[in-house]
Design a protein around this nucleic acid. Structure first.
Ligand SMILES: [Zn+2]
Ligand SMILES: [Zn+2]
Ligand SMILES: [Zn+2]
Ligand SMILES: [Zn+2]
Lengths: 137, 137
DNA sequence: GTTGCAAATGCAACTTGTTGCATTTGCAAG
DNA sequence: CTTGCAAATGCAACAAGTTGCATTTGCAAC
């Protein structure tokens, strides 16, 4: 897996805990929370500590190996960056989630750069609002 | 203050705690956190309870009397909606904050509506990235 | 001004996430 | 295969935010 090489190249150790967290995020169907990662791993490997999980997630996020997103359920959720980027529209009435291609926000990124010289990090945005079904009723 | 009328019109009681929280947010120079509101109020009115503050903020936010935003310092910060809306670009290198007029994201809002029928709530976005100064160095 | 009662608050226990520090360990060098 | 040591982890205490429930109170009706 490419992630291991990134860690090694930047001088970070390849510990069993880091490998387990990376595998858990990679194999998760959807976006997974720190708590869920901890629960899954602690069942099989009781020696794994909660604070270690949080520190590993902070590291992986800083290295951009995983993306963080706040889907509005009160916790940060993680996603393997290697699986690609995308955005979410979340309906605040019915909770439905619409996924957007990363490229959808290309014009926005370009206008930020042109007007403000600001290189916006738009890899995994979450936008709240009301979906078409809920608007018509 | 208009906020009181909104509360009354929707059938919510006008309690001393709610009035104090509204005044504190309105008179805050910048975006203020729940913890800061609690500290300021608890100094002068020791009977005020922490959980009450959090519940009031949740209510005011739901009624759109205040806007929530995560400026990346680990807590949600609040802003009086009556003072107007805007967006923030935050540089992840130097921490500088660039404020945007609400209208800047008008085209984005329009394209969400046109392409997905989604009425996006873009009143107070926070976008992370790298500012022009930090990019040139 | 009383009264009645649902709404709001205070309290305390709890959950979730963070931090400082002692111990352990990945891994590079010999 | 050892050794050395900075990096990483485990632990326990802590901070921030949430929840259930008993008590209090805003306020509308009389
Ligand atoms: Zn996503
Ligand atoms: Zn909906
Ligand atoms: Zn703001
Ligand atoms: Zn900068």
């Amino acid at each position: 897996m490419l992630c291991y090489e990134v860690l090694h190249a930047k001088g970070y150790r390849l510990t069993p805990q880091r490998i387990l967290v990376l595998k858990t995020i990679y194999h998760a169907d959807n976006h997974i929370s720190a708590e869920e990662i901890y629960e899954q791993l602690h069942d099989r490997f009781p020696y794994i500590n909660k604070s270690t999980i949080y520190r590993i997630l902070e590291l992986l996020s800083g290295l951009k190996l995983v993306t963080e997103s706040n889907l509005g359920d009160g916790c940060i959720r993680y996603h393997a960056a290697i699986k690609g980027h995308h955005h979410h529209l979340i309906c605040r009435i019915c909770g439905k989630v619409i996924d957007l291609e990363e490229s959808t926000l290309g014009p926005l990124k370009a206008s930020m750069l042109r007007d403000y010289g600001f290189d916006a990090d738009l890899r995994h945005m979450v936008i709240s609002g009301v979906c078409s079904d809920c608007r018509s009723s």
